[in-house]
Simulated scan of single mutants.
Amino acid sequence: MTDALQLVLENADGTQLETVCTRFAVIWQGRELWVQQADGQLLIGVDVEEGDSEYANLLLRPMATNLVSLQLEMEPAGSDEDGHVHGPECEH
Score class of each variant (00 low, 15 high):
Met1Ser: 15
Met1Asp: 12
Thr2Leu: 07
Ala4Ser: 11
Ala4Asp: 11
Leu5Glu: 01
Leu5Ile: 13
Leu5Ser: 01
Gln6Phe: 12
Leu7Ala: 04
Val8Gly: 05
Val8Leu: 10
Leu9Asn: 06
Leu9Lys: 08
Glu10Trp: 05
Glu10Ser: 11
Asp13Gly: 03
Gln16Tyr: 01
Leu17Gln: 13
Leu17Pro: 00
Leu17Trp: 11
Glu18His: 10
Thr19His: 04
Val20Tyr: 06
Val20Phe: 06
Thr22Cys: 09
Thr22Arg: 10
Arg23Ser: 14
Phe24Cys: 01
Phe24Lys: 00
Ala25Trp: 00
Val26Lys: 06
Val26Gln: 13
Ile27Phe: 07
Ile27Glu: 13
Trp28Ala: 15
Trp28Gln: 14
Gln29Cys: 04
Gly30Val: 07
Gly30Arg: 00
Leu33Phe: 04
Trp34Tyr: 11
Val35Ile: 10
Gln37Gly: 12
Gln37Lys: 08
Asp39Ile: 01
Asp39Gln: 15
Gly40His: 03
Gly40Thr: 07
Gln41Asp: 15
Gln41Trp: 04
Leu42Ile: 09
Leu42Tyr: 00
Leu42Cys: 07
Ile44Trp: 00
Ile44His: 00
Gly45Ser: 14
Val46Pro: 00
Asp47Val: 01
Asp47Glu: 15
Val48Leu: 01
Val48Trp: 00
Glu49Arg: 11
Glu50Pro: 03
Ser53Thr: 14
Ser53Gly: 15
Ser53Tyr: 10
Ser53Phe: 11
Glu54Met: 07
Tyr55Val: 02
Tyr55Cys: 03
Ala56Ser: 13
Asn57Thr: 14
Leu58Val: 12
Leu59Val: 06
Leu60Ser: 06
Pro62Met: 06
Pro62Glu: 09
Met63Ile: 15
Met63Asn: 10
Ala64Gly: 09
Thr65Cys: 10
Thr65Phe: 13
Asn66Val: 07
Asn66Ile: 03
Leu67Gln: 13
Gln71Ala: 08
Gln71Thr: 14
Gln71Val: 13
Met74Val: 11
Glu75Gly: 02
Glu75Cys: 09
Gly78Ala: 02
Ser79Ala: 14
Asp82Cys: 05
Gly83Asp: 03
Gly83Met: 05
His84Thr: 11
Val85Cys: 08
Val85Leu: 15
Pro88Phe: 09
Cys90Ser: 11
Cys90Lys: 13
Glu91Ser: 11
